[in-house]
Design a protein around this nucleic acid. Structure first.
Length: 757
DNA sequence: ATCAAATTTATTTTT
DNA sequence: TAAATTTGAT
């Protein structure tokens, strides 16, 4: 008992041992947040206040959920079965699988990931003959998700204008289509389970009664629907232990609402607000910089981090003439750190947007320094894996038209667009799935479709008794996917990934406690007669029903594929420099951190100026970046930078000017807070000899060469008239009317023009 | 049905 | 610049 509370500081101890009331823990960066969360659970269990089944712990990422579980099992011999520890989406999935009938879902509903959702919407627009220039699929997806995350069904949305009226109508059609096809998108998991509990008093009271303690990680990231969901589940008697940091709220752009922290204090009459301000991560200078920076934000609950560690090294900052020089400087400093004995994986290079990684990678590559870039395609998002998954989904749920369309002609089997159109027409006429509509299609297309249906059915029959890995292997072979990639010249990697899918399935079964040998298509609850033993509602709810009782191994694996897209980092394990956006660095820490591209327009990003609260969110982002560093912090910016094929001339970020002088060491001469007066002298102090220099574009000294009204000749477009000139220096662009080719805006440093004499 | 050319567009991202 | 998507041609 005592041992788990050992070494907690007074605030942590207070938080862990709070009475059973709702509480808000303001946990600063590096203040031992996860420790408090897991110790709280262990303490509740050890003091006998609650049993494992009475606890729910919610996180945003699978990684965080796993981390919590593994740290908990060190402190307490956990029966993982009974505890509901998982992501919002994972827990909602569990609710919906358990009560699929009450939720009006088929037992084996499939989950759409964002890619799937977008293609579903595109298909919807096409079948309804909607002009997708007028109603872009992306906008519709945004509209739908936004509505769902506010808790609104199509019927609840009050359209403000004709455009919205149409969007609502399409939202409604989308709802119908998903329902028909037995698929559910991410937001739907939340909304559907919210509605389930709201509508069904028995269920609601059961779960409210059961989960006496609900713990929420990263509370500042909750969206409105997640907050409503928590409120509903907590009812009047359960307590919510919410841990979060308003200063680290960086996901407003995807619906996170920091305001939930304030609402929570009111709605739950929170008496206990505890601040964890003791930082165990960073040296003093780094913390002071972070504190000073974030103090520029107006809307805060307020918090100041402190440390027992000394002030440590100063923060080193460099103004580079160009992005190339900036990288050169990073290289020098990195080599220095490595020579001092720092591990490469303890060094992170952070940037605001992914596009910035290119130059950095290039530099590291040339210098032969191993690095690892975070982000990019994850395992289950790869095309070949998505194809394989689609075959599996079709076997799991034949109504899934998205899956059907993805593979009906992949590998190619002569089923063309025309045939598909006929099929879709038939499906619509008879109100059935594409799969069921096949017999209605006659002619050549009908024959090809006929063999497809026979293929799927024969696979399904063959696969009936198989366990999951064997089933997948069989599907890969019989579908022709293997053969397809064997014959494709660049298919080797893809084949390897497909093989990995089989191993992923094996790993999944053992991790989730499924029997390795059970038939993949059936749940374990099978009587000797082969009939499903129906659990009563009470049994389902009261017993701690393992996932394997409510989902077949196949359904469970498909869910896993959608909800946990897998690793997105290459070459794990190697000692390599870490490259990532500031967003993906959240939650991580490193001995040394480089924050690059500290320029107005980049960081803070220019687009953020248009959103309200945008600048404060950018500043929080900077705060997150700074607080990643343990011992060393490096900042840099460049006077010129190549972006989207154009040269950009940036001034330094206001965030640089907001940092306290005494914590900084300038490696280039310091400028007067240059973001306030954009015109400044270029520095000549930088050694540029080792760096390829940008050549000044031909039109650099004003564009006397070209005049408005002049006729010019272009290789492709022929004769045209200059109607406008804009920009300066390298940025000169000309608006030229090329008659039948229309108006073109050409970059004069790139386009080759001739004067028409 | 497939590939090449043209056009467009470029924050941040987990589930 | 470069990647992704759409259009157009064979």
């Amino acid at each position: 008992m005592d041992t788990i509370l050992d070494n907690l500081n007074p605030e942590q101890l207070a938080a862990v041992t709070l009475p059973s009331q709702s509480a808000l823990i303001l946990a600063g960066a590096g203040s031992g947040k996860t420790r408090v969360l897991t110790t709280r659970i262990a303490w509740l269990l050890k003091t006998g206040q609650v049993s494992t089944s009475g606890i729910m712990a919610v996180t945003f990422t699978n990684k965080a959920a796993k981390e919590m579980l593994s740290r908990l099992s060190v402190m307490f011999p956990v029966n993982a079965r009974g505890m509901w520890i998982g992501t919002f989406h994972g827990l909602c999935n569990r609710l919906l699988r358990t009560h699929y009938q009450d939720a009006a879902l088929p037992q084996s509903f499939n989950i759409l990931d964002s890619q799937d959702q977008l293609s579903t919407v595109k298909r919807l627009l096409k079948t309804n003959n909607i002009d997708d220039d007028k109603y872009p699929p992306r906008n519709l997806v945004y509209f739908i998700n936004h509505a769902k995350e506010s808790g609104y069904r199509a019927s609840h949305v009050e359209p403000q204008d004709d455009y919205e009226r149409k969007m609502v109508e399409l939202y409604s059609l989308y709802e119908d289509q998903c329902q028909r096809e037995g698929v559910v998108d991410f937001a739907e998991l939340l909304l559907r389970s919210y509605e389930l509990l709201e509508r069904n008093q028995t269920l609601r009271e059961h779960y409210q009664d059961r989960f006496r303690h609900i713990l929420v990680d990263e509370f500042q990231d909750t969206n409105n629907l997640q907050y409503k969901w928590l409120k509903l589940l907590a009812g009047n008697d359960s307590s919510i232990f919410a841990v979060g940091d308003d200063d680290q709220s960086i996901y407003a752009f995807r619906g996170a609402n920091v305001g939930n922290m304030l609402s929570f204090q009111q709605d739950f009459n929170v008496q206990n607000l505890i601040r964890l301000e003791q930082n165990y991560r960073s040296h003093g200078n780094i913390l002071e910089a972070a504190n000073t920076l974030i103090a520029h934000n107006r809307n805060r609950l307020g918090k100041n981090l402190h440390t027992d560690a000394g002030e440590g090294e100063p923060i080193r900052i460099c103004e580079a003439p160009s992005d190339l020089n900036e990288v050169q400087w990073i290289l020098e400093e990195v080599n220095h750190l490595i020579r001092e004995g720092m591990e490469r994986k303890q060094i992170a290079v952070l940037y605001r947007s992914n596009a910035q990684s290119r130059v950095i990678e290039h530099g590291l590559f040339s210098a032969g320094i191993p690095y690892r870039v975070y982000g990019g395609l994850r395992f289950f998002e790869r095309a070949e894996i998505k194809h394989a998954i689609a075959y599996l989904q079709l076997i799991d749920n034949p109504a899934n038209n998205a899956a059907f369309l993805r593979v009906v002609n992949f590998p190619a089997r002569g089923i063309g667009a025309r045939t598909i159109e006929n099929l879709q027409e038939m499906a619509r006429m008879h109100d059935i799935s594409l799969f069921e509509a096949i017999p209605y299609v006659s002619g050549k297309g009908g024959t090809a479709l006929g063999s497809f249906i026979r293929l799927i059915q024969s696979i399904r029959a063959e696969v009936q008794p198989m366990n999951l890995p064997t089933l997948i292997q069989t599907v890969l072979e019989k579908s022709g996917l293997m053969m397809h990639y064997q014959t494709e010249k660049e298919g080797a990697d893809r084949l390897e990934n497909l093989e990995q899918l089989v191993s992923a399935a094996m790993l999944f079964l053992s991790e989730e406690g499924f029997s390795q040998e059970a038939p993949a298509l059936m749940t374990e609850a099978v009587t000797p007669a082969g009939e499903k033993s129906m659990l009563t509602v009470d049994e389902v709810m009261d017993a701690d029903v393992p996932l394997s009782m409510i989902m077949s191994p196949l359904s469970a694996f498909l869910t896993h594929a959608s909800l946990e897209a897998g690793e997105n980092q290459a070459q794990e394990g190697q000692d390599a420099l870490q490259l990532m956006t500031v967003h993906s660095a959240k939650g991580l820490e490193f001995d040394a951190v480089f924050i690059t591209g500290l320029e107005e327009g980049l960081f803070p990003h220019e687009n953020s100026a248009r959103e309200d609260g945008g600048l404060e969110e950018e500043r929080r982002l900077m705060y997150v970046a700074i607080t990643r560093a343990r011992k060393r912090l490096y900042l840099s910016y460049a006077q010129t930078r190549m972006l989207h094929g154009h040269m950009r001339y940036n001034v330094s970020s206001r965030f640089v000017a907001e940092l306290p002088d005494k914590t900084m060491k300038w490696l280039t001469p310091k400028k007067q807070s240059s973001y306030l007066n954009p015109r400044h002298e270029p520095t000549a102090r930088f050694d540029q000899s080792s760096v390829p220099q940008m050549q000044a574009p031909a039109s650099f000294h004003k564009n006397s060469e070209w005049r408005i009204g002049e006729t010019v000749i272009h290789k492709k477009f022929g004769e045209g008239v200059i109607v406008g000139l804009e920009g300066q220096g390298a940025n000169v662009r000309a608006n030229i009317n090329f008659g039948r080719h229309g108006m073109k805006l050409l970059d004069l440093s790139i386009a080759k023009l001739e004067h028409a004499s």
